[in-house]
Every structure is written in structure tokens, then in C-alpha cells.
Amino acid sequence: MDVEQVGDVLVIKLPSRLDAVGVAAIENKLSETTAAHKGKALADMSGVDFVASLALRMLLTNLKAVQSLGGDLRLCGLQPQISEIFRKSRFDTLFKIYDDCQSALEGYAAE
């Protein structure tokens, strides 16, 4: 999991496999990083080719935590299969989702 700051946005590049093993490897670091930053966060999911319910739980937990601190966690770059998971689970109604990092950063900047 790579993290970089672009302006006031924390951009987190998520690893390809967010299965049980992948989630266990990053969930603590992800929650610590987003909680410490408090503000605008963006999870770049362009490299992610698998999510299941554990990954959805992790993302929702982080969204709740960061929103309660006054920030937000947005997503970008979902591959078609991942988009389908978000659509069926209606997670696409919980997160602001952008096609790519650039449009997500522009979205944040326009506010």
C-alpha cells in the first residue's frame, strides 16, 4: 500500500488482491493513516482486481471513521468487476467514486 499526499489530499494506492490475506496486511495501516490525516482521502483502486465482503467492511469502517473526523474517503479507478460488486452491494451509493485519480482530485479541489 503506497501513500502520497497531493495538495491536501491523501492518495492511497490499494494493492491488487483485497482478499482476506490482502485486507489483513493493510487494514491497520489504512485506518491509522486515514485517522492521522483526518481530512480528504482518496483510495486509488485502479490496481485492485479482487474485493469481497471483508474489503467492503474495511472501506466502510474507514469511511465512517474519517467522516466522523470531518474528512472523506473517496474512491477512483474501479475495474469493471469491482464496479459490479459495488453496484450489487449498493456501496456505490455510500462512496463518491471517480473514473480516475485526476477527476477525483479535481472533484475535491472544486469544493
Partner: peptide
């Protein structure tokens, strides 16, 4: 069936894994 309707703070994910298995 899982609750797919809540907002961010009220949404729970119990039953979501099996729901996805059934859907796919």
C-alpha cells in the same frame, strides 16, 4: 437478505458476503 439501503453511518454489512455469492 442484507440491508442494502442504509446511509454511511447506519449501514451494516452482515450477510453481504453470502449475498454476493448468490448474486454472482
Amino acid at each position: 437478505e442484507p440491508d442494502l439501503c442504509g446511509d454511511v453511518q447506519s449501514r451494516t454489512i452482515g450477510g453481504l458476503g453470502l449475498f454476493l455469492v448468490r448474486e454472482f
